[in-house]
């Protein structure tokens, strides 16, 4: 029975996101232009450096990393913060709270649907294009399976951060501000805007213990067979880290939500 209701939610999420096909197309187009900038910038960067390999990353490695990070970003993008603040302002959140299902898992499964369709519509095409253009720079094998596991874990970590931040909306109405702070921190510290390999050693050590890395950096390392993910011990360490953050963020999120939900004030409620 439980499984069925989750599947129903995932299905609804898929249908809902397919409804906004134009949005997906425009996003793809925007990404293309954005990648043009990334390409020229890093080409100039590598051309000026004089060496082919910087911090263990070649130009091709960097491009693959950044392009797939952007693709992952699009597919993992959530608007929980916006959704929640909007439904608090309109009062619709009451309906969600009354549903015979925890608000947290309701949101999670609904978003999983849109993640599935985004993964197929946006990530897979991007991945195939990158694979063809770079002519085999991405190893094909068991790493793809490991990557999928990593992506699922990344999605849970991302959702955990989203929910923690969204819960803050119960205290303040400053959605734009809260959201931009979260987005900036995640983008910089997860390796989505600049590969983590380029950070200075000491800072990298600190960042590697933060949860943000589990969203983009670890799945991409696994995909490219880097960061020790080709050995069993290395892989266990990366996955263990993702799993650890899944648990910590989920527990923290559930507790924080429980405390905060009493705070809800709905206009005219």
């Amino acid at each position: 029975m439980t499984i069925r209701k989750y599947i129903a939610l995932v299905r609804a999420g898929i249908m809902e996101s397919l409804h906004f096909r134009l949005g997906t197309a425009v996003t793809l187009f925007a990404n293309l232009i954005y990648l043009v900038l990334v390409y020229f910038l890093w080409k100039a960067v590598y051309a000026s450096s004089g060496t082919d390999v910087v911090n263990g990353m070649t130009f091709t490695d960097t491009m693959i990393y950044l392009i797939l990070a952007t693709a992952l970003f699009n597919f993992l993008e959530m608007f929980v913060v916006w959704d929640m603040s909007r439904s608090i302002q309109s009062g619709a959140i009451i309906l969600d709270l009354l549903k015979p299902m925890k608000y947290r898992s309701y949101t999670f499964w609904k978003y999983s649907g849109s993640h599935v369709s985004q993964f197929i519509l946006a990530f897979v095409p991007t991945f195939i294009v990158v694979m063809i253009v770079t002519k085999g720079a991405i190893p094909i094998g068991l790493n793809l399976v490991k990557f999928m596991v990593s992506v699922v874990l990344a999605q849970i970590v991302n959702f955990g951060i989203e929910m923690l931040v969204a819960t803050l909306c119960l205290y303040t109405e400053s959605t734009w501000g809260i959201n931009i702070v979260k987005e900036t921190i995640v983008l910089v510290l997860s390796g989505a805007s600049i590969p983590l390999a380029f950070f200075p050693e000491s800072i990298r050590n600190i960042i590697s213990w933060m949860p943000f890395r589990a969203i983009y950096d670890i799945p991409l390392q696994v995909l490219l067979n880097k960061g020790g993910s080709d050995t069993l011990a290395g892989l266990a360490k990366l996955w263990g880290m993702q799993l650890g953050w899944c648990v910590i963020l989920t527990v923290a999120g559930v507790i924080f939500w429980k405390i905060s939900v009493r705070k809800i004030t709905v206009n005219g409620g």
């Binding site: 400053s174 501000g177 809260i178 959201n179 931009i180 702070v181 900036t184 921190i185 983008l187």
Partner: peptide, 15 residues
């Protein structure tokens, strides 16, 4: 809202 938005703006620039 003003304070948090301003912090957000500074954060993006800092990033």
């Amino acid at each position: 809202d003003f304070v948090i938005s301003t912090i957000g703006m500074i954060m993006t620039n800092l990033a």
